[in-house]
Amino acid sequence: MAAASRTPSRWGEIALLCAICLFCVFPFYWMVTTSLKTQVVALQSPPAWLFTPTLQNYIDVLVEDRMGFALMNSMIVSVSTTALAVCLGCPAAYALARFEFRGKTDLWFWFITNRFVSPVVLAFPVFMIARETGLRDTHIALILMYLTFTLPIVIWICTDQFRSIPYDLDEAAQLEGASQWRIFRSICLPLAMPGVAVSAILSFIFAWNELLFAYILAPKAAKTAPAMAVTFMEGYSVPYGKIMATSTLIVIPVLIFALLASKHLVRGLTMGAVK
């Protein structure tokens, strides 16, 4: 522990920080380098650290294994559910921040409780309902089910954002005779845009990463990228390079978004209990 040394050397601290970074980043390094190996190189024992890189795995997974198709499905589902969550969630967040009504805290707690519910609790009932309504294996089924976690995230973060907007603005607009909807749409929503953007990024990350609903509800036509990745492990000869190329393709979008929203990821994961 850093507490042990009384006159800590800067170099020790730098070395520690480098070790932390290395621990976090090494699996990604290994993932990307393995994705650039041919199957022959990937099956060297012990593993090779120096080799001639090739992009063949990427071409293979995108063309032959329909990974492009799965990535497109993931993109359609994640973007749609995020857009839907923002459209539904912003007005609700505004109401929670500004209006006075009975049952407000209960409603608020219900939204937060959704953070704790395991997808496996909902997956099979939804599977049955989707079977009966013909929604099985459609984008719509996934887009709707992902609302169970994207909507609470949007509502929570946006409520916080609306609360930070001075109430005087509302009052001034009310005196001018503006309707609540007008105040929300023209005054508060534009000011709340940073919070809306953060909540949209977090929604996208969580939707993109989701596996269980996708695996159970969308076996073929609407199969998403993580569900596709799982099926690679089935079968006898395991194509390491292709698996890691697939993983790289899946992970890149979320990592970019995570870095963009790095200051807010923890806030989103704790539903704001930790700022």
Partner: peptide, 9 residues
């Protein structure tokens, strides 16, 4: 990075 990584990956 680790906590944003797709859990399946």
């Amino acid at each position: 990075l680790p906590m944003a990584t797709t859990y399946a990956v």
